[in-house]
Simulated assay, not measured.
Amino acid sequence: MGKLSLFEVSYSKERPVYYPGEPVEGQVTVELNDTMKMRGMHLRFKGMARVHWTEERSSGSRTIRTDHFSAEEEYFYISFLLAGRWKDEPGHDINLPAGRHTYPFSYKLPSRLPSSFAGAYGFVGYDAKCTIDKPWKFNHEAETSFIVRNRLDLNREPRAKKPNRRSKSKTLCCLCCTSGPISATFSIDRQGYVIGEEIIINAEIENLSNKRVKKSKVVLMQEVLYHATTKTKPKTHDYAKLKHGEIKQGDTDYWNAERLVVPPLTPSFLRGCKIIDVRYFLMLDVTPAGPSSDLVLYLNVIIGNIPRQGVVAQPSAVDQPAAHQPSGKGASKGSKKRSRPRRGSAYITEESQPLAEELSLKNTEL
């Protein structure tokens, strides 16, 4: 790297996870092998959301047209000067001497922010980027992301403590013959959970048809709605699953208080973000033998990160959704340009030495 042997942005926390309104603290470290001339050095913080996908459609006999759907939100974009001057301000360049230089920082996040999220067609991302602005040469940049976790308190969600129950029957048809029904009742004792808690599942599946039931399963699913300017795109993912075997003709299968542990997940709703909506539900899927379609029931659940009072969550070894967090550099591609980011004051020390009521289930992928 020539004169620059080390240039990084690091956080004071081992895992850079922050709540809205909390200060993001850390330091910028620069290590030089020789004196470096620069206009200045500045540190930028950014929070934004973006959705984007493409769809192909025929526009004629042989022409395929690709339509783009997208939307963006910006939550903050602010820079602080660490050394020297801004590019558009008068003054002299500075010479940073060889050696190790550290610049501690503390930036207080806005009080209302959505949780970090990364999905198939969009993300909510937060990052910090430091730039060494060099006259007549390429700039040096060091960038790293951090995680924001918005609080979803299940004590403030009226549905979280309420049970949920549904029943459904399905009559199977085979050519001209009609058999008896397959019936199912599916229930949970409450709808609100946090990571590590167990969902207690009860179900009764009665097979009065003339076919055997091959299997049944319960799946914890996430539905994400990506809202572009002119269209909404749903996407579903399954995260946890329980299975039962076959049910013979005339038999009944019971799910008696079976337990499904909630894995690391982004909280429901993604509050604070208007272009991405996250919801969860349990699906009971009963599969009869032969060409008949499945009997399917859905129950809404709410995933929070503050448990209900009186409910002790099991500790989770991993409390952050296992999803790739895109860096701001890639995330900001296509966003509007600025002549200069907003500047603000923050604690930055001088140079020193030595981080669904109703479910929309169209195009559900299982």
Results as ranks from 00 to 15, higher is better:
residue 49 A to P: 01
residue 255 W to D: 04
residue 172 L to Q: 07
residue 289 A to E: 14
residue 101 H to C: 05
residue 174 C to V: 15
residue 54 T to R: 12
residue 365 E to I: 10
residue 6 L to T: 11
residue 136 W to T: 14
residue 13 K to Q: 14
residue 203 A to G: 06
residue 328 G to D: 11
residue 63 T to F: 03
residue 294 D to H: 10
residue 267 P to I: 00
residue 78 I to W: 02
residue 33 N to S: 13
residue 257 A to V: 06
residue 180 G to Y: 11
residue 33 N to Q: 11
residue 203 A to S: 13
residue 173 C to W: 06
residue 351 E to N: 12
residue 144 T to Y: 06
residue 250 G to E: 08
residue 39 R to N: 10
residue 70 S to K: 08
residue 3 K to G: 09
residue 60 G to D: 09
residue 30 V to Y: 01
residue 314 Q to R: 14
residue 292 S to D: 15
residue 336 K to I: 06
residue 239 Y to C: 05
residue 366 L to C: 03
residue 223 E to L: 10
residue 223 E to I: 13
residue 139 N to P: 04
residue 339 S to I: 14
residue 104 P to E: 07
residue 179 S to Q: 04
residue 146 F to L: 11
residue 331 A to V: 11
residue 67 D to I: 14
residue 145 S to L: 04
residue 109 L to F: 05
residue 59 S to Q: 13
residue 165 R to Y: 04
residue 42 H to T: 03
residue 281 F to W: 11
residue 68 H to T: 14
residue 360 S to P: 00
residue 325 Q to Y: 07
residue 226 Y to K: 07
residue 36 M to D: 01
residue 237 H to D: 15
residue 141 E to R: 13
residue 36 M to N: 01
residue 357 E to K: 06
residue 304 G to K: 04
residue 10 S to V: 10
residue 85 R to W: 06
residue 224 V to E: 05
residue 281 F to P: 01
residue 216 S to N: 07
residue 304 G to T: 07
residue 331 A to E: 08
residue 185 T to S: 15
residue 231 K to V: 11
residue 70 S to Y: 11
residue 33 N to P: 00
residue 163 P to D: 07
residue 144 T to I: 10
residue 321 P to M: 12
residue 225 L to G: 03
residue 178 T to V: 15
residue 271 R to H: 02
residue 280 Y to E: 07
residue 295 L to K: 06
residue 7 F to E: 00
residue 107 Y to H: 08
residue 69 F to Y: 14
residue 366 L to T: 08
residue 350 E to H: 09
residue 236 T to M: 05
residue 283 M to I: 04
residue 313 A to M: 09
residue 361 L to Y: 03
residue 132 I to E: 05
residue 202 N to S: 15
residue 277 D to C: 01
residue 342 R to L: 15
residue 317 A to L: 10
residue 34 D to C: 01
